[in-house]
């Protein structure tokens, strides 16, 4: 099932919502708010949501987007769900490392590895 969105491409794989970003740059405040709102909408509609954010298309990320991801992670945890991130390029992963957010998020090299880790839960 694919849902319309200006910023996100959302597909369902079993119990997991797999999200890809349409924008290469997640920088604009308005876009970040809209992305956050769409992702929270996905999470709020079901108990125990399982969400994979695939960053393969993303090559720039503002700190406000990191804040949006933290808020999303809290929402997912409140719903007893799981949030995983994958395909983060080397430059953006460095941003996660500098901010120590690589310790906060469950980050996988590839979407396939992330999906396998959902299956192991």
């Amino acid at each position: 099932m694919e849902q319309p969105s200006t910023h996100l491409k959302i597909k369902r794989a079993g119990n997991v919502s797999v999200v890809e970003f349409a924008d290469r740059k997640i920088l604009e405040e308005i876009s970040i708010q809209e992305i956050g709102s769409e992702l929270r909408g996905l999470v709020e509609t079901e108990p125990g949501p399982q969400l994979l954010l695939n960053f393969q298309n993303v090559d720039h990320l503002a700190s406000a987007a990191l804040g949006m991801l933290i808020t999303l992670q809290k929402k997912v945890q409140e719903q007893n769900g799981l949030l995983k991130l994958s395909n983060i390029n080397r430059q953006i992963f460095q941003v996660f490392k500098i901010t120590r957010l690589n310790r906060v998020f469950d980050i996988h090299d590839t979407a396939e590895k992330a999906m396998e880790s959902f299956a192991r839960v």
Binding site: S63, A64, G67, I70, V104
Partner: peptide
């Protein structure tokens, strides 16, 4: 670590 803001300056 889990505060949603305050990372811009340190970056």
């Amino acid at each position: 670590l889990e505060r949603p803001s305050g990372r811009g300056l340190m970056l």
